[in-house]
Design a protein around this nucleic acid. Structure first.
Lengths: 344, 344
DNA sequence: GTGAAAGCGCTAACAT
DNA sequence: ATGTTAGCGCTTTCAC
């Protein structure tokens, strides 16, 4: 038991101990069948004895890959990452995730960092400004890129998105079904194409029953801060005829609504994009439009894998369906029990 | 504008175009001051013209680092990652995060993957079983390891933890102050040392006023599933004298409690470990013991950096304070407005 | 079936 | 101040 800082053994050490050439060691660890059984055993013994583990940096450099998929997301708690990581792992890849706060400068730096590490593919949740030109250059070098949640502005890459318009339709129809006549929408900044699509879909529905002139006072979008969302909710409620229900554009917006008005939303009905953990226990329980984040993450990774082996495929867009998770007095409590699993 | 899959330029290409030696290119990109201004300019021009970007794999192989810190966490949404990533970025490092579901086999695989990539350091949120022996071998090779949230079983590594006992004291005292006499505890499985520490601290407090015999019916721990937590809450409430308040061991347990009993917890008072986004809007608003996750993540990374330059420092443990976030009818609403910022 | 040797794209001596 | 050269630890021809 030598203590202190021992040099890590290399393949050469293994070869020497096993009295074979390094190429033989390499063949053994790569399961090359042409190695004789006795040598293979000697090599395995030496590996065991030295506790040798391959240096992936060297392997990657030599083979021209990195065994890594880069993920560029707004925040490390981005729900897409779980599915992507799982899919990456089953493909023998690791996920190198970096967050950008959806800031253009950080995003550019993050993408460049990942490219310098020669990631084998890139999943990107694009911010508003976009890293378009640079990314296109990388794609020309053969980098598979999959946008997630929304396409990369001005860039033709694979992408996985949800059916935003359908989600709004589900929410809108649900509220109509509950008898609401005047409904308002509060969403994220329309610089994000997702938010824009949702707001637009809402406007289209509102026009079915309301005059065009009132639209600007039914739809409020902007950066999601408690202050701005609160102000816009107040503004929406001040409009006559007053809205009796709200459609929120994403989880963060819903949260702001609750924090601004309280858990009961002062009696307002609300259906939001994105499920949240306590939606079922609020009074009343809240119906939501749920995205399948796990599937989206996995789909993004799958698109990258596909493009790795078929680089010349036409650009694909995968639309993952959303679904309405109905909750409320009229719905049996049991129906929601599978929609959330406990993390730790 | 050549299209198709162009080979990425290398440093040799840059050198050739600039009519200098590769070492000169290397010096320029590494800001070596000894390069003459005219050559430096030629090199920069060539880099620009070719759109060359260094291959970090090669650089890392040569310099013996990886520019990467591994993070092994139970789930990718682990709140520690944000702080750790931020700190890593300002140190010029990237964070390679892998999730384990706190499963021993996955944890072992994850750690080994990261070691084969020769990460410069490892942050690990240890599962129950522990990867002790293997990790000790890696540490002998000089790998800086920082455990986060709880120490690695049987392994003397740096660690950053919270003051679990003090957190329980804060919760307990708060409830005593509100007039509660009988209080129960529901927590995570005591295989996790954090959960064990919290349960033990609770037992110590309960013993101040209750007979030892009743302890087993005041403290319930186990895996956090809605079913088990629900069952244990029911069991706790069936004990006479009946508890009028609950201390929950972590966010997941609190969530289960709400989902089992409803938002009002059937009138029960509750203080939980970990803040959660809607704690303030529930009726009544819920007081919590908040951990400073960002600080913990940053502290773990800082311990690694410290050990990188002073490998022989004695093992350190950093205890990050917890704080009671009081919420309730008697507290002005404004006081909580800074405790949650909106993500996205 | 096995070994010797040439790289992968960089950095760091060591020359000059 | 600049160039030449020997690696980092692997994989992969190419010989035998």
């Amino acid at each position: 038991m030598t203590s202190g800082r021992a040099r890590r053994p290399t393949m050469v050490d293994v070869a020497r101990l096993a009295r074979v050439a390094v190429s033989t060691v390499s063949r053994v660890v790569n399961a090359d069948t042409t190695v004789g059984p006795e040598l293979a055993e000697r090599v395995r013994g030496a590996i065991e004895e030295l506790g040798w583990e391959a240096d992936e940096r060297a392997r990657h450099l030599r083979t021209g890959v990195s065994g890594t998929i880069g993920a560029v997301v707004g925040d490390l708690d981005s729900p897409f990452l779980r599915g992507a990581e799982r899919a990456a792992r089953s493909a023998g890849l690791m996920l190198l995730a970096t967050s950008t706060d959806l800031d253009a400068a950080l995003e550019a730096r993050a993408v460049s960092s990942l490219c310098r590490r020669r990631v084998d593919g890139l999943i990107i949740e694009p911010g508003a400004a976009g890293t378009g030109a640079y990314l296109r250059a990388q794609m020309a070098h053969g980098l598979p890129v999959a946008a997630i949640d929304r396409p990369i502005p001005d860039t033709a890459s694979d992408s996985v998105v949800v059916d935003n318009a359908h989600g709004i339709d589900l929410a809108y129809d649900h509220l109509l079904g509950r008898g609401h006549r005047y409904i308002a929408h509060v969403g994220d900044t329309e610089v994000l194409s997702t938010a824009a699509a949702r707001a637009d879909a809402f406007r289209r529905r509102a026009l079915e029953t309301e005059p065009r002139g009132v639209l600007a006072r039914r739809v409020f979008t902007g950066p999601v801060t408690l202050q701005r969302v609160g102000r816009d909710i107040d503004a929406a409620l001040a409009v006559r005829p007053a809205p009796t229900a709200l459609v929120t554009g994403n989880a963060a917006t819903s949260t702001c609504a609750f924090r601004h008005l309280g858990a009961d939303l002062a009696g307002l009905d609300l259906v939001g994009f994105d499920d949240f953990e306590l939606a079922g226990i609020l009074d009343p329980p809240r119906t939501v439009v749920a995205q399948d984040f796990a599937t989206m993450g996995a789909a993004a990774l799958e698109m990258i894998l596909t493009r790795m082996e078929s680089p010349d495929l036409p650009v694909r867009q995968r639309v993952v369906p959303v679904r309405l998770v109905e909750r409320g007095p009229s719905v049996t409590v049991g129906s929601e029990s599978s929609s959330w699993t406990m993390a730790r």
